[in-house]
Design a binder for these strands. Sequence first.
DNA 1: CTGCGTGGCATTTTT
DNA 2: TGCCACGCAG
Length: 696
Amino acid sequence: MLEELNNKQKEAVLYNDGPLLIIAGAGAGKTKTLTTKIAYLIEHEHISPYSILAITFTNKAAKEMQERVINLVGEYAKNMQISTFHSFGLRVLRENYDELGYDRNFVIMDSDDSLTVVKKILKELDLDPKMFNPNAIRNKISSCKNEMISPREYERFASSEFEKVVLEVYTKYEDKLKKNNSVDFDDLLILPIKLFKNNDDILDKYQERFKYILVDEYQDTNQAQYILTKLLASKYRNICVVGDENQSIYSFRGANYRNILNFEKDYKEAKVIKLEQNYRSTENILDAANSVIKNNSSRKDKNLWSDKGKGDKIIYFRSYDEKDEAHYVARNIKKLLDSGKSADEIAVLYRTNAQSRTIEEEMLKENIPYRVVGSFYFYSRKEIKDLMAYLRLIHNSKDNVSLTRVINSPKRGIGLKTIASLNEKADRLGVSIYEAIDSGKELEFKNTIEDLKKVSENVTLTELIDKVLDTTGYRKELESEGTLEADIRLENLEEFKSITRAFEDRDGLISLEDFLFEVSLVSDRDEYQDGANKVSLMTIHAVKGLEFNDVFVVGLEEGIFPHMNSLMENSELEEERRLMYVAITRAKERLYLINARRRMLYGKDSINPPSRFIGEIDSNLIESSEEKKEEATVKINKEENFYTEEQEWNVGDYAYHDTFGAGRVVEVSGSLVSVAFKMPYGIKKLMKNHKSLKKV
DNA sequence: CTGCGTGGCATTTTT
DNA sequence: TGCCACGCAG
């Protein structure tokens, strides 16, 4: 078992007495170390799998880890608990819903549902959603919850008008969820904490059960996850966390990489082991990653190295526009495929989902097999959400969110007015909307659901779905539409049935309850399957933990990557840089960095200077693509026709100069502007309308 | 209540 | 650019 490990990894596997922090750089064999460690605990330390809790970042990672441990020690290992924080929280909740004041059949609301609730509350409060962005409010509520700030506590912080609105919405939001017998994602972490804090005996039970706790991707834990871990580990202190602060990319949803930097303060007796040998990438790629990340200030010292040799240089290509960029990517992927490389080993990475579109079009044109991971994933499609809402309603009729979603879909002549008055009645009587229904077309709807409830007791889940689609008229409505779009929706519903069937094949019968819970926590990344023999298109956030021979990073422009919204705060810029670090370290053999001189953005043409991250890579590691030179000359000639119109300049504007690169206007006088460029150029006086100077 | 058209608008990353 | 909210006519 230990043979395949290096010394550091071995040390990490063998140390099982007390807190352990494993600092593992990208590609340093972290998963291997963790799985071997678990296997070792079971086989050599004779720890019951039942006492082991391992937390991973995705459900898929959990499943893989479990499989690998089973391979090492056999089926016996099935009894261990490997899950994400959220699934673990759900499990605790299902075992203790009563103490927390929920009904057995509570439901989980996804972020879309939460947003719907927030919008609804704004309406009830008669607040203009244009003045108070529902999304921003939802995010604020979520971050409060993740930092364990209750509405009552938030009262002390809320001073601005926006915050006061948040406070009001937050209070109502919590109230509504409870009344709906539903919980949101954040509750899955917070409610267990509440439970443990208020019931020593229950906490003790879980501490006794999970004597060994392992947490992967520790740099991405938020406050709630941190506390949850701490509570569980505080008795036996056998806690092992693994992470890399350079790969912390989720602070926007409350992750705090300092949790990893502070581990040694929390556990004074902690042992620290660094895994610094990278088994994934060539030296050039690693050097590039290191030279980028060293521009960040707060990090633990770490020195990633590889014995794979220098390898190919990093290829940089500056395209004319986003179409040209996509074309370049497609052409080079074609070359790779023609030379016998597998599509599985190629990835195109971008900062924002919106960028996938152009790439996708080009892949279609060039007939390259591809898949887009994430973005518009299966469970967020309208027809799937509708079907899910029906199923939830059958399971828990108090679920007002699901009810309002489907009460008029397919059309039943129940409009906004009817729903509003039902809502009001329900509020008045202190019951759910479902319970408040007693007449009209609504009653027909209610009867349909009642019938389905009875049906659900005697049929399999897959059969139930057919019944739902038929008796509600949902299928019929789609069929009568006859559009291509409707056909796709029908196909998706069939696809959904094959998922439920797979569940049934796996576990025999699956109950509606188990299914709803299982499905509400699948993420888009969980859909990612190996061996599809397709090129992967995904955001850098989605690619974490994966690796490819050839990686194309597109859109490396100021304002896109690093993203516009992160330029003001240094901490946010550093997060973008970590994102760049993650992107680079996905590549095993070849890395392509690409950007566009101009690009359509929000319907407008915009010109962006190259990303600063490119400049941070030692230039001797980079080779400019050959194609660049030919194309660039052609394109530059083209460009000259475009930019001769008057340019208005103001102090503070960002500018881009063909020779001097990115700069910022420091003075405007007459027909001249003074622009501060990066060293060695410094401040230059230039003609306002010169072709070489563009506003960014 | 429903369907259609328009105009205004915001656009990061997601368990 | 594409989505969504809104207003209007049937």
